[in-house]
Amino acid sequence: MGPEKDCILDIRDLVMRFGGLMALYRPDFVVMRGSITAIIGPNGAGKTTLFNVITGFLIPTEGLVLFNDKPITCLKPHQISRIGISRTFQTVEIFRNMTVLENVMLGFHGRMGSSFTASGLKAPWAVKKENLIKEKAEGILKFIGLSRKSNHAADSLPLGEQKILEVARALACEPALICLDEPAAGLNETESHVLSSLIRAIKEKGITVLLVEHDMKVVMDISDDILVLNHGQKIAQGPPDEIKSHPRVIEAYLGDE
């Protein structure tokens, strides 16, 4: 297999400008199918911006994002979600007005949601789909370890579990690529440990993981490949061992913080 066959996401010549501010400048890289790829960098390096471009929340000033060799830069967020890229948010964005189970069930909306009319008429196929969604959602909660809280109000969960719930919801989109934005932020050591093994388990399922993370322990522990950004540009890419000792990476971190 050549490298082209292996890559699920290909970022080419990407430029994102906000007025006079250059948020991203050509951080060309590819994400290998089935890998865990981490994006790190000092605050304001453009990591979340990059996520927002990949998931369609921002339209880049220039450049291309290819997902499975198809350009997705002009797609809307919900379309991108439906073709297999799902994400979590840095600021926890669970649906606070729903139960834990309903949060995960919503994740299936893009792929198997029923139309307004079918729902209103309680069409048999809509009811069937709804039952299937529920079953699948319960499966995901089991996988992620939140089954016993499935009927709790989502906002009654502690922060750690809210973050896990967000991952569960993203899994419900049945993605090929899942983008996690600082999943370990605000978690204690035990919780980030749980998270690390969860991310590995996701990889085991054949889902490619792309994550932005500040917690170096988590990053070094689980990543196959690490991309380092600074001021919107790529300054290094490679496996954890290489990145740890990379002079420009050390410089970027020491220079900034």
Partner: peptide
Amino acid sequence: RAIHSSEAAAMAMGVN
């Protein structure tokens, strides 16, 4: 209800 709670998250979950 998802839209009510968080439009961004709803979009990311495939809600138009």
